[in-house]
Amino acid sequence: MKLGIVGYGSYIPKYRIKVEEIARVWGKDPQSIKKGLIVNEKSVPAPDEDTATIAVEAGRYALKRANINPKDIGALYVGSESHPYAVKPTSSIVAEALGITPDLTAADLEFACKAGTAGIQMCMGLVGSGMVKYGMAIGADTAQGAPGDALEYTAAAGGACYIIGNIKRELIAEINDTYSFTTDTPDFWRREGKPYPKHGGRFTGEPAFFRHVINAAKNLMEKMGTEAKDYDYCVFHQPNGKFYIKAAKSLGFNEEQYKYGLLTPYLGNTYSGAVPLGLSNVLDNGKEGDRILAVSYGSGSGSDAFDITVTSRIEEVVNKAPKTMDLLNKKKYIDYSIYLKYRGGIKI
């Protein structure tokens, strides 16, 4: 049975802060940061935006593209590590705002930066088993980096939504298969009640990000009997531009294949939104028959890999909602003091 994507939508807040502006405050050299991380600027949520509002906006766009009755969605998962409440689901807010309630199952997911793709897999299971007609998975974050920490240059806000179904004529992309690679690797964490995450510095690299992304990608390709050259596009998790490009190259992908999936240089790391947003930009540029490899990464650690083929229906839906690059290009720069105010860094 064919499973796949019947609708997708993305959302990026309009505010941006440049690496230069953050570096200025902390007395760092912006050029070495920009070169080291391959990040120039990042998105910042407005004070009236959070994971729930980003998820709703992305969800509304996904519904426009899918053109289905929201009431037919039987499962909704919102993956994030910045849910507005510690206890009280984001997913029920989103379900209500999208008009999906009350006949559905919903839950919030958390697996660092891969909770969004975990939601896609859960929807695939529910749709594939016939338990629900459509499933909706959203990855969205308003990521927090401690002031002065390296993460502050990248921790960004955004998200994307995917509606999973199995009615062949409705699919805009088929998901050929998925594979996950999971271990206990404590490279990045945030304890309950703490505002900012901590990380293991260089430990986040080889034993964490690269091990999981590369194993997930390789094992899926082995399962599918494919090589890098069989894909038109690839998307990887992108805590910064450098990790992404290094992972892509080590798997044998070239710039033409990886460039559409890489948004971090002008968006930053949207955590649970990162691979969902990268994939949405690939779909915006996709055409019938294009094959995509998408691999997420969540610290702690795990990677979900997907093998996807675009169908002809992509052309009908792509312009029914704003494209990811349109959202990325609509921007307003703010300085560090406004950024602090918006992010709750000033206590009133």
Partner: peptide
């Protein structure tokens, strides 16, 4: 007269 559309936000 500016054309507008509803969005979902924290109030």
């Amino acid at each position: 007269g500016m054309p507008v559309e509803a969005v979902f936000r924290r109030i």
